[in-house]
């Protein structure tokens, strides 16, 4: 507008700064430190994995991947994931449901127990299963008599992975379900729905993002778990080696390029997971903004 003279700003006004904001140099210092740190300790090693994998050419890379032992490790990892993921989803849903919808004695104990795998070192977790099911373990003799092998066999690997990935889905769902309360479920009941219908039509749709997110994290850990699995696996090449164990073995056998080749598959999986998670978050944020805009449009 031509008629209104522009107010002249002095230097201090022009670079107006909020009272709550840090001084600019502090801000930039913190950002630089954070960026440098993630560059050196996160991005560089990751790039290095791929660089090393292809260091001796694509043929070596491809040979390492199609080696029968690598294929066997991948199959085992896949099998473990396919068993553990649904079980943990089921458990996570059940635990979150119990904790958020019911009042019962020992509830806080259950919450603490769910967190246990997070606080126990994976190696200790693996050892727990050895102490229980190993030959010298509590149930060792009983199992040996019936020729059931758990330790140094696939069941042990599944158990160890199950233990380590236990909290992911439940931890993701509990806060969401707590925030949602039980009003929607109650109104489903008043409309005649039984427990299963209520769960299927009302509860599940309202937690589906959290469930998906928890499941992704759970899968990532199933695939990547090393410590606990290492203790119970027995490292029988082609039989009880998962992908991470196989990578270590190759590396220890001075097959660096092969080790990094297999590792690159894990890294790729991790990147995909991260990408998927970011995309889901972005999508939810977008839906949220849309909803807010719609709300504003209504109130105006």
């Amino acid at each position: 507008m031509a008629g209104i003279p522009k107010p002249k700003l002095n230097a201090g006004q022009r670079k107006s700064q909020r009272g709550t904001e840090e001084a600019p140099f502090v801000k930039w210092l913190l950002i630089t430190v954070a960026l440098l740190f993630s560059l050196v300790f996160l991005l560089l090693p990751l790039v290095n994995v791929f660089a090393q994998a292809f260091a001796k050419g694509f043929t070596v890379y491809w040979d390492a991947l199609k080696h029968p032992d690598t294929i066997a490790a991948m199959k085992l990892t896949l099998l473990v994931t396919v068993i553990c993921m649904p079980l943990n989803v089921l458990f996570g849903l059940a635990a979150a449901w119990a904790i958020t919808k019911f009042e019962f004695r020992g509830k806080s104990l259950l919450v603490t127990l769910i967190d246990l795998p997070f606080s126990v070192s994976p190696v200790v977790a693996g050892l727990m299963f050895v102490v229980l099911f190993g030959l010298q373990g509590y149930f060792g003799e009983w199992l040996a008599d019936r020729e059931i092998r758990i330790i140094f066999a696939v069941p042990g690997i599944v158990l160890a992975t199950l233990f380590v990935t236990f909290p992911f889905v439940a931890r993701e769902l509990i806060p969401i379900m707590q925030a949602a309360g039980s009003d929607q479920e109650q109104s489903a009941l008043t409309l005649g729905a039984n427990g299963w219908q209520t769960f299927w039509y009302v509860t599940l749709p309202s937690v589906k993002m959290g469930l998906l997110y928890g499941t992704i994290l759970c899968i990532a850990r199933c695939v990547g778990e090393f410590g606990a699995v290492s203790v119970v696996s027995g490292h029988i090449t082609g039989k009880t080696d998962t992908v991470p164990l196989h990578v270590e073995k190759l590396y220890n056998e001075y097959q660096g390029a092969a080790a990094f080749a297999v590792a690159s598959i894990l890294a790729l999986g991790a990147l995909l997971t991260l990408g998927l998670k970011t995309w889901l978050e972005w999508r939810e944020a977008k839906l949220e903004t849309l909803a807010q805009q719609a709300e504003q449009a209504i109130t105006q």
Binding site: D183, Q186, S187, A188, T190, G192, Y201, P205, S206
Partner: peptide, 20 residues
Amino acid sequence: PVQKRNIGFVFQGYALFKSM
């Protein structure tokens, strides 16, 4: 049980199904 009483219930916070 509540499902069999054939009542209509309107909750204080409405409790509409958010995903529908």
